[in-house]
Design a protein around this nucleic acid. Structure first.
Lengths: 115, 115
DNA sequence: CTTGATTCTGACGTCGGCGGTAGGTTCTAG
DNA sequence: CTAGAACCTACCGCCGACGTCAGAATCAAG
């Protein structure tokens, strides 16, 4: 599969795919002429990247996670990082929930005035 | 209250406070010599800003929200924005929850191997 | 009045995830 | 064989929330 199709099927830009490779997240093969050749599971991997990006993980962290996903190994460093990110995201959800509640208050107050 | 104390009590940097003013979020008075003079409620306001920043609202949005907080008025534009941000944050929480679940899977798998 | 801590105003630097452009090459359909 | 679509590398640009100087002015204490 070439880069354009991966982009369409995964919903990201061609530029983003090249960026992911630059960051060590994808390592597609190459055609004789130098064009990137992606395996089938590339699309799923990209979707996973998007999820992690949305959760605030930088490329470097995602790259560090890859061995845990691909091979079934986990170093001490990775173990610590997994737990740290878990805690960070949990906390982030709490903060968002608080902010959401505050927004809801504003919305309800405004709704009363509009009624 | 001067800027240093506001910074200490609210937990943000002096630079951040000046930045907030630049963005129209705070409008402290000035001493005869030009130093900023903050009212008591500035600390609370800054904490609110931090919450909204943590929720992904840019300064411009927060500035647009201020009239809803300070005075009890809401324009159509503000009403739409309030609801849009509410939806965005809800969606963001969903995404974080999904990512968190995926991380939890990785952690449990790793925990088994470590056991 | 002096000193040292605090504050002031610019203005440039940073980081991350791409967007966009330029100029050239490769692939594929007819 | 040729055209045009898709691809390549390399590089600069952008945004937002500050960090980080530099150099000058102000403030509170003794």
């Amino acid at each position: 599969m070439r880069i354009g199709e991966v982009a369409r099927r995964s919903g990201v830009s061609v530029r983003a795919l090249r960026y992911y490779e630059e960051q060590g997240l994808l390592t597609p093969g190459r055609s004789p002429g130098g064009h990137r050749e992606y395996a089938e599971d590339a699309v799923d991997r990209v979707r996973i990247f998007q999820q992690f990006y949305a959760a605030g993980l930088p490329s470097r962290r995602i790259a560090e996670l890859l061995p845990c996903i691909d091979t079934d190994t986990t170093t001490d460093h990775q173990w610590a990082m997994l737990n740290a990110e878990h805690a960070r995201i949990s906390q982030q959800i709490d903060q968002l929930t608080t902010a959401l509640a505050r927004l809801t208050e504003l919305i309800e107050a405004a709704a009363d005035r509009r009624a």
